[in-house]
Design a binder for these strands. Structure first.
Lengths: 194, 194, 194, 194
DNA sequence: CATGAATGAGATTTCATTCAT
DNA sequence: CATGAATGAAATCTCATTCAT
């Protein structure tokens, strides 16, 4: 459908040139239509990008949910492992969306800031809650405080890996994932020996 | 000096609107001059932004060097601690530059990608080398491999904290720094007990 | 009928925005259809407006005829009186058409100028002839010249009132109609005393 | 000066095509510059036309004041006479402005309606007050009410003449002015014989 | 140093219109 | 009858840049 192709092109152009550099012309050309035609589907550039960003964030959210869902029946260390690997694998196989996503979070157009902030809060809450629940299930002897600490530490590692998607090539990134897994292993060991 | 004010305004506008949204008009207005006047100092927009980005990256680099330098005579854990705290403190007190820096790394204008990539490699190498050296000095019993691992893990935590500057408010960020310090403490403990 | 609703909407939009501002979109929206549908009824914008203006002028003409017809059996002063009152009453109760009519006469689209000029001449001739005839019937002692003068003077007053529809609120306008009637009364008095 | 030439061209184009048909391109072409250059002098089309209309109305007002001033030392009938003749002479020798003025009053762009209404009120008040004062000076035996009536009647004739500028050719218009003068003469005669 | 004036190129958007369904 | 989808042309406006002063 043309409407969806426009969204995809908008996200792609955004990933390349940011909001002001992603022109209606370039988007139209990528879709294979004329700029005027975009206005049949979207009222203006702002509404197009609101739709595009919504789709982007939502599909990122759903992907994360899927990864967590697929991993949730294993042991806690494996879950962490799968989450890191799954996140990176997804992002590496959807570089356009990932670049757009990173760009959006790192330097959102002024009009999106509010909307984006709310999404990030929702996402963060979901991630922390889900992880804490899994941690309690797998490590029932943990206090509430300990479980929270553990999840926060894991999220910190996830964020580190996420930022490094920007910086490192595939090989180095895989090495960093190993380091992250290693760290989680040691932290869990420490807890279980206490 | 007007020339420096232009650079600062360019960085500020870039942090707000990215490359294509940072117009010569807005930059001029922020400085209090007319757009035509910018061309007395810089040949064109591209050269202005090359200068601006160079300054931005260089001053970030120097700042990091300064932080490391100030911390380097303490114990290894304190060094890690100071680096994290110093980095965040610097960025929080220079939000404009930080936003511009993050934006630049996360979604650089096509023309800058090459230049940026080289800078990041230099910076990364320096950071890893410096940290490895300090680790060896403070923990002389570590093998080369162990030292490298430790520094990589620390860098991963630093990157996590860095990305979270984007996401969290001050309070939550301070909490995350604590978590990072706590993690480093446990990792070192583990190594020293082996 | 849709076709008539389109005409009415075209006239309304014309009264608000003039020819170039009365877009097919706005007309369609007012009717509750899509712009493409208009082309089933009218070949293009120009033909739509030719039809609209013809209807507008013709209905104005017929209305004036009706008013004259209804008044023509009274005394001459009453006839003048009824014409003024009737004209204003009609226009005040059809403000959209009146605004469009005034707008059309005051600043016709270039393509309409010729057509409009002819209509105005026809209308003017009819009005002068009709009035002159009535004047002769009611005031048989008048010379041809005197009758013509009287009708021209009356038309001048009518035109004044007409322009003032633009300018004044209802109350002031009613006051001006009284003045016009008063003037006609005095003029007739003057003639009859000679 | 370019700025003034732009204003004049805007008024001219407006007189030909009304607000939406008076494009920046046509205006620029008439001045002999490029459309972009207009924006150096006026922020946008709306502000350009606000300036243009202000100039138009103000210069019309001043012209009327000048005509009244030049006529004010004669007898009352001559004053009326001069006003009518002066108004028409001015408008006939400034057809562009007059067409624009009529168009503006008859079908103002929505954004101008408020501003225009206030101007018209000011103008109307000035005209009525000035005429009433002259009437009292020249015809001191008139009551306040009679003076007011006389001026209103004169204004009605003026408005009739004004609207007829639209409708008639020069010759017919001169004839109508004669009729207007004749009417004023008779009205005054009536008053003085009472 | 700095600006006023100007512009070519291009961005966003609107408009009248077409045509297949 | 009516519309969804599309478009060429043009309208408004912005942008980077130039150049004389």
């Amino acid at each position: 459908m043309t409407k969806d192709k426009i969204l995809a092109a908008a996200i792609h152009q955004y990933s390349l040139f940011n909001y002001y550099g992603a022109t209606m012309q370039k988007i139209a050309k990528e879709v294979g239509i004329k700029p005027a035609s975009i206005y049949f589907f979207y009222k203006n550039k702002e509404e197009l990008f609101i739709a595009a960003f919504q789709k982007l964030l939502q599909s990122h959210f759903e992907q994360m949910k899927g990864i967590l869902d697929a991993a949730k029946d294993a042991g806690i260390l494996e879950i962490f492992n799968s989450l890191l690997a799954g996140t990176v694998a997804y992002h590496k196989s959807h570089m356009q969306e990932t670049n757009a996503y990173i760009s959006l979070v790192a330097s959102p157009p002024a009009e999106m800031k509010q909307f984006l902030h709310e999404h990030m809060k929702t996402f963060d809450t979901w991630m922390l809650d889900s992880l804490a629940e899994l941690a309690k299930r797998e490590l029932p002897h943990l206090t509430e405080t300990e479980a929270k600490m553990l999840t926060k530490q894991f999220v910190l590692l996830m964020d580190g890996i996420f930022w490094e998607i920007n910086l490192y090539d595939d090989e180095t990134l895989q090495e960093q994932i190993k380091q992250a897994n290693e760290m989680m292993r040691k932290l869990l060991e420490g807890i279980q020996h206490e």
